[in-house]
Design a protein around this nucleic acid. Structure first.
Length: 485
RNA sequence: GGCCCGUUGGUGAAACGGUUAACACAUCGCCCUCUCAAGGCGACAUUCACGGGUUCAAAUCCCGUACGGGUCACCA
């Protein structure tokens, strides 16, 4: 049977990391099957929580990550519509809810939300566990008709036989079974006519032919209730793949609500979508081989539902940071150049060779946002004091720096063929002639050129980027400082 | 509180009754080196939340306890 999975977010804001990981896993499960279908369904049944533009964020995020859906509101498909509010207009949910009422698996309920709430509080105050026993189940057909005709608001509530047990098999958590008496009779259809998530989800998953339900483990305890609905209709129960939560720390889930990083925030900080995706794939799942860097196609190949963990995983930005660096270093130069250019240009406005800049950056950048600060010395020589010339490891001091720089200047002034190779050979030669270590010549030179204690690139690379004129100008400034001392 | 789920180093994790308890990030050393990175090498859990039990043998199986999470919404 062809695998069909769905990602079913509600458009209520930004896409957070846990959400994205669920989408990823659903995608991987589908694509593991060469004919597998990955579906996007928008669950907008809570009209009060809708946020303008949230659906676009979902489309954009999936697109940026390469999680291409085969069916969905924007791409169509044979099982549409793919937006629940549109399906609701078709009267779909009400029709199915009424079928359940007819078969005795659901009932009309006139209870007021506040009343139930009040009863619950009383029970809690007494320390008793509260399971709502709906008095409306006893209402006669006539009375129900009368009250509906009188315009009274009502909901349709699931009817559960408290006897017996319901169990299901989860691919990740194994077999789970619960006593039916602990199951509460959830609302299927709200008084505004919209279905609840709980109901719409079951109906749509069935109607859309979903074979594998991938979702967060917070649904583990509702799943028995969903199965009761499947059974009431005589439908096949899908395979369940419940995923452990992505945590912010030991005790808190990652959530947009707490202002935790969303996919978008991470991208804005300079993390690459492919690195983010690779990293979150490893949060709650581990490959069978000893490897961590996977492209999306490679993930499809390596993914195995059986290797999804059962316990929550803490999101560790340090590791993402490292992984982002790996992706950046592995990248081909053309794309790298294209990617870093806007970041370089925020702090570098002079006309330096971007290729050369890219070259010194490549092995050193883990986060694109770090680039401007790393290059802040290129446009203008920052103010600095001569103690920068003191370095124990290099065994340099202002005195030694002065000597080295005088000699360096003499040499550099003679160079007509100003390019990396020439400078390299010339300067190393000079160090040899002076009988000092390379570092004792090059370290001071690098400081003189940059005005910083550390920089991407060394003296030769920087001199190459600056060119003869600017290099000598900065050298003179350094010598002035050293002469004053 | 009832029910459900979980618990291996700071973090992600491997192990599927018998290993010196992998690997990666982070951290700390050393090497390389013109700084910083990158790279190389090495260190880092007498121990797998705790207590019992089963077994010749337990991180792995069973029971209990503790702790954490989830759920009990006309939110998803």
């Amino acid at each position: 049977m062809t695998i069909r999975t769905r990602f079913a977010p509600s458009p209520t804001g930004y896409m957070h990391i846990g959400n994205l990981r669920t989408a990823l896993y659903a995608y991987l499960v589908a694509k593991k099957d060469p004919a597998g279908v990955f579906i996007l369904r928008i669950e907008d049944t809570d009209q009060g929580r809708l946020i303008q533009g949230a659906t676009d964020i979902i489309y954009d995020t999936l697109k940026e990550c390469g999680l291409k859906h085969d069916e969905g509101p924007d791409v169509g498909g044979e099982y549409g519509p793919y937006i629940q509010s549109e399906r609701m207009k078709l009267g779909l949910y009400k029709e199915y809810a009424m079928k359940l009422v007819d078969s005795g698996h659901a009932h009309i309920c006139f209870c007021k939300e506040e009343d139930i709430e009040a009863q619950k509080e009383v029970a809690e105050a007494k320390g008793e566990s509260f399971i709502y026993r709906d008095p409306c189940k006893k209402l006669s057909k006539e009375e129900i008709q009368k009250r509906i005709a009188a315009g009274e608001e009502y909901v349709i509530r699931q009817t559960i036989d408290p006897n017996g047990k319901t169990s299901f098999d989860d691919e990740v958590y194994g077999t789970i079974s619960v006593d039916n008496e602990t199951l509460d009779e959830m609302i299927l259809l709200k008084s505004d006519g919209y279905p609840t998530y709980n109901f719409a989800n079951v109906i749509d998953d069935h109607l859309m032919g979903i074979t594998d339900v991938v979702r967060g483990n917070e649904y583990l305890s509702s799943t028995p209730k969903y199965n009761l609905i499947y059974q009431a209709f005589g439908w096949n129960i899908p395979r369940y793949i419940h995923c452990p939560p992505v945590m912010k720390d030991e005790t808190h889930k990652l959530s947009k609500r707490n202002g935790d990083a969303s996919f978008n925030d991470l991208v804005l900080k300079g993390y690459l979508p492919e690195a983010i995706l690779n990293y979150i794939a490893l949060l709650g799942w581990s490959p069978s081989e000893e490897r961590e860097i996977y492209s999306l196609p490679e993930l499809i190949e390596a993914f195995d539902v059986k290797r999804i963990n059962t316990s929550g995983a803490i999101f560790d930005i340090e590791k993402l940071h490292w992984m982002n660096g790996v992706y950046l270093r592995q990248m081909d130069m053309d794309r790298y150049l294209e990617l870093i250019t806007p970041f370089v240009k925020t702090s570098v406005h002079k006309d330096y060779d971007l290729h050369k800049i890219a070259h010194i950056l490549k092995e050193r950048v883990s986060l694109l946002n770090d680039i401007p600060e790393m290059l802040d010395f290129l446009d203008e020589l920052p103010p600095y004091t001569i103690d920068l010339f003191t370095n124990k490891k290099m065994k340099t001091s202002p005195e030694l720096a002065k000597k080295s720089l005088i000699e360096a200047k003499k040499y550099l002034e003679t160079v007509s063929d100003w390019q990396s190779e020439t400078l390299h050979d010339g300067l190393l030669n000079l160090a040899k002639e002076l009988e000092i270590k390379n570092g004792q010549l090059l370290f001071p030179l690098r400081v003189a050129l940059s005005g910083k204690s550390f920089t991407p690139g060394g003296a030769i690379e920087l001199a190459d980027i600056f060119g003869k004129e600017e290099s000598l100008r900065r050298l003179d400034i350094a010598l002035d400082k050293l002469n004053e001392a």
